[in-house]
């Protein structure tokens, strides 16, 4: 639908993200208890096709919007660095998705510390009372 083809270039990341997003959406529908099997069987494919359709629509809209820009049809070739990044990304996803992180407290603390906001907070100052 996007005419992107199956070439192995930088565009594979976009395909990967879309695939995971749609997969997540499907997974969340299929695991909901309040939906009957029949409903899941109907809603699942609908969401799948709408999601893919929306992706294609946005892709084609963005392509049309950027049609005059240079290098628009010259995708970046896939580099080793990009592949490593993609693999780390996928590993991170599965560590979270499967709850593997729970067995590694050092990882939790490391990520907590790395994601802490700026160290100076409003607690840094106090007034002097007289």
């Amino acid at each position: 639908m996007t005419n992107k083809g199956l070439k192995l270039d930088g565009g594979i990341f976009l395909t990967l993200i879309v695939a995971i997003t749609v997969g997540q959406a499907m997974d969340n529908i299929l695991t909901r208890q309040e939906l009957s099997v029949v409903k899941k069987a109907i809603i699942g494919p609908i969401v799948f096709f709408i999601s893919i359709g929306l992706y294609a629509l946005m892709y084609n809209s963005a392509t049309k919007f950027m049609v005059d820009m240079p290098m628009i049809d010259h995708p970046e070739p896939l580099s080793v660095l990009q592949i490593v990044f993609g693999v780390i990304f996928l590993i991170g996803f599965f560590i979270m998705k499967l709850g593997i992180y729970e067995g590694f407290p050092w990882l939790y603390v490391k990520l907590v510390n790395d994601s802490q906001p700026f160290k100076k907070t409003v607690l840094r100052y106090k007034k002097t009372l007289k």
């Binding site: 990967l16 993200i17 995971i20 749609v22 997540q24 992706y55 996803f93």
Partner: peptide
């Protein structure tokens, strides 16, 4: 919420 918070789907969603 799930689509917004899960790492990879956040980009697409």
């Amino acid at each position: 919420k799930r689509l917004k918070n899960i790492l990879p789907s956040a980009f697409g969603f």
